[in-house]
């Protein structure tokens, strides 16, 4: 399975993260999104006319929407991640997949603006981002009252993976997460999952490993 990938893209990271959590190996093809704008070049447009990343290719199958890729990976390698044990749950997961597009259009755009100098109305991006975070915080608060820590049900689903990256990277776009305790704890729970991988902007939870007992002397290495 081949993923056309850009290391700083939150959407590409969704797929890398999902694959890592499922133990699925991806062949990563780096696309020079910045500064080369290779995703807008003819050769790449022949693959994906929309000129967007990520692109997932598996045999004859070619997908260009990250939420569809999450569904595909989970269907193939970890059905529990679909979160579709009841009709209501399946529908709620779909609701979050759609919500994740709002996160990309707000927090994701604020990040591109502040980090890679993309044009746009930064105040509008941030305002819309804060609206999303408040909705998510309210939901996660009620989930915690019910003893849950993930978006839907007792285990993580593709809904969590779709929403996590743009939320965790919100500070890159000048939007603080300090005001959202329930989001913070949700984010920690995801970062502590076995197989979790980071991307730039999301640091390792070093506390998951004990402090080293002894530091090997440099001259002995």
């Amino acid at each position: 399975m081949k993923l056309y990938d850009y290391v700083l893209s939150a959407s590409c990271y969704k797929i890398r993260l999902m694959a890592a959590l499922l133990g699925v190996k991806l062949d990563l093809v780096a696309v020079d999104f910045h500064p080369g704008r290779e995703h807008r070049a003819l050769a790449f447009r022949n693959l994906n006319p929309a000129g967007t990343l990520p692109v997932l290719v598996d045999g004859d199958l070619m997908l260009t929407e990250s939420t569809a890729m999450l569904v595909y990976l989970a269907q193939a390698s970890g059905r529990a991640w679909l979160g579709d044990s009841t009709p209501a749950r399946a529908a709620k997961v779909q609701n979050w997949l759609a919500f994740s597009a709002r996160l990309g259009a707000s927090l994701g755009m604020a990040r591109l603006h502040d980090m890679l100098i993309y044009p746009g109305d930064i105040d509008a991006f941030r305002r819309a981002g804060v609206e999303c975070l408040r909705e998510l915080e309210a939901h996660m608060t009620e989930a915690r009252f019910a003893g849950r820590i993930f978006l839907e049900g007792d285990a993580p689903t593709i809904a969590d993976i779709a929403c996590f990256p743009n939320v965790a990277l919100a500070p890159d776009g000048g939007v603080t997460l300090d005001d959202y305790p329930a989001i913070r704890l949700w984010s920690r729970a995801l970062r502590a999952l076995p197989g979790f991988i980071e991307m730039p902007g999301i640091h390792r939870l070093h506390e998951l490993k004990p402090a080293p007992e002894a530091v090997p002397a440099l001259e002995d290495l």
Partner: peptide, 9 residues
């Protein structure tokens, strides 16, 4: 870019 963006935060 990965290295430098790890420093950014």
């Amino acid at each position: 870019q990965m290295i430098f963006l790890q420093d950014r935060s």
